[in-house]
Design a protein around this nucleic acid. Sequence first.
RNA 1: GGGGACGUAGAUCAAUUGGUUAGAUCGUCGCCCUGUCACGGCGAAGGCUGCGGGUUCGAGCCCCGACGUCCCCGCCA
Length: 577
Amino acid sequence: MLKRTHTCGEPKSELIGKEIILNGWCGSVRDHGGLVFVNLRDRYGVTQTVIDPKETPNLIESAKSLRSEDVIAVKGSLRSRPEGQLNKNMPTGEVELLVKELVILNRANTPPFEIEDDTNASEELRLKYRYLDLRRPALQKILMLRHKAANITRNYLSDHNFLEIETPILTKSTPEGARDYLVPSRISKGHFYALPQSPQLFKQLLMVAGFDRYFQIVKCFRDEDLRADRQPEFTQIDCEMSFIDREDIYNIMEGLIVLLWKECKGVELKRPFERLAYKDAVARFGSDRPDRRIPWELQDVTTIFKGSGFKAFASVVESGSIIKAINIKNHADKFSRKDLDTAGEFVKAYGAKGVASLKGIDKFLGDAEKQALKSELKIEENDIVLLVGDKPKVVNDSLGALRVDLGKKFKSFDVNKIDLLWVTDFPLMEFDEKDQRHVSLHHPFTAPNPEDLHFMDTDATKARALAYDLVMNGSELGGGSIRIHDRAIQQKVFDLLKITREEAKKRFGFLLEALEFGAPPHGGIAFGLDRIIMMLAGTDSIRDVIAFPKTTSASDLMSDAPSDVDPAQLKELGIKI
RNA sequence: GGGGACGUAGAUCAAUUGGUUAGAUCGUCGCCCUGUCACGGCGAAGGCUGCGGGUUCGAGCCCCGACGUCCCCGCCA
């Protein structure tokens, strides 16, 4: 075959007069009856090629036969385009290749959609023909960005003495956390491997082994429902370090994030990153991953409504629940009756009964209440105040989400701004009323803050964990913690989680045992690589940053996975459906 | 498990109150065209209105059901 001497992105004026060979895919073929123009594309760019019947009458027939997405090789001489025929929109727009030889390497069927960046083909169709979708320069750019970011990460961590060590994919199912993907064992019938939700236990064991600094860019699997930013298999930048405290983690990881944004976006992020305690994040923004670009904050006005003339809120206070408000400054004129109804529907998803506008309940309020609200919420002309009263979790979840929704709807902030912060001091545990037991907020190996150890015997939900999340623009990019390296504290946590000694021994006895063989103090963090790329690429869909993603029902429209299997395979595994 | 939006030529969409032969653009195919780059001109083909029921004299449109895609809640240590 005619092997390329250059890529389709390279031809520039410096190469004029040179004889070169290009390989690539035909984009638009413009047949003028005599002259034929073919845009030739590969992942590096697009170059215009010309077939001129005066020069090569023998080629004109096959040139006319070219169709979109045919694969060709062309040899010819690069020349500058005629006066007034330059294309300023193309990086190679000053030149064109006058074709002397043309080889059709492969014909293409008519593609089911046009291979263009601004394709309007449905995502369903694009996923079915993902290999065609991936030919679009926009997606190619993202995957090249992903490669670059992964490379930078690998080099940075390696330069900081981290070792990349692989951990098993066929591993052991452990309680707590997400639903596992299970893999049946053929050799040991009735037993199953689990695909890792993360390499958590293994990386801790690597610390026990003395590897000190570990990282891995690694696939993780969680059999949970999907979202715009969640896939069942996703990639983590997984890190763990020994003989360190939280500040060491912040320090090293901030360096990585700063480098990624600098190299990939040319953006200088300010260090150190700001920090916000979990309880303040929830109090002010109703969320443990606040987007602080949106100006309005939640304010607790529970006490003002004690004994209020607005009976609904008075009884909320009575029952020990809370009332919070957001003051949407200077938006009363833009906020329609319909917007209020929409907001009311919106919060119902979070279990709230509805949203009240201060204007709507004004007639039930006494002067003292009005005055208190006005000064507390700093209400001015043209402000609109929305309130929700309910149990704290419902109020924070609903009003926090509503704040973000309205902030985006009313374009209340500069989308180019980056809000980056560590959310710290997560509670170690929450109490699950349904199961009547504590559950870890992060995971069962997270160390409690030593200052709060005494709460473990009184009210464990008051104990803070040495855990942290990195949050950018309201999205959790990663999180981690200092781990428990003390067997006794680990046992205490299991007790609170109501994991029996037998269960603990059976499920992660190997870790517990390891903790008794000289485990160093250690901790770590894992970033969602996919989400980092989403941020860098500025896309809202995780599917845009994964070469072969799954739909919201976790299927692959291209390969049609998951699918049924041969009964013989099941028999071999000892499985009956 | 729950809520919402959508499903009509190859693609993206339209079709008045339920009423004649379901339209447009892009793509495809054919002919013409020597400076286009979203080339242009003329012409043509292409539809069981995603699937299964129902209401009606009559259904793309109304009702019911399953399916698929997307968004959200639950879930995601």
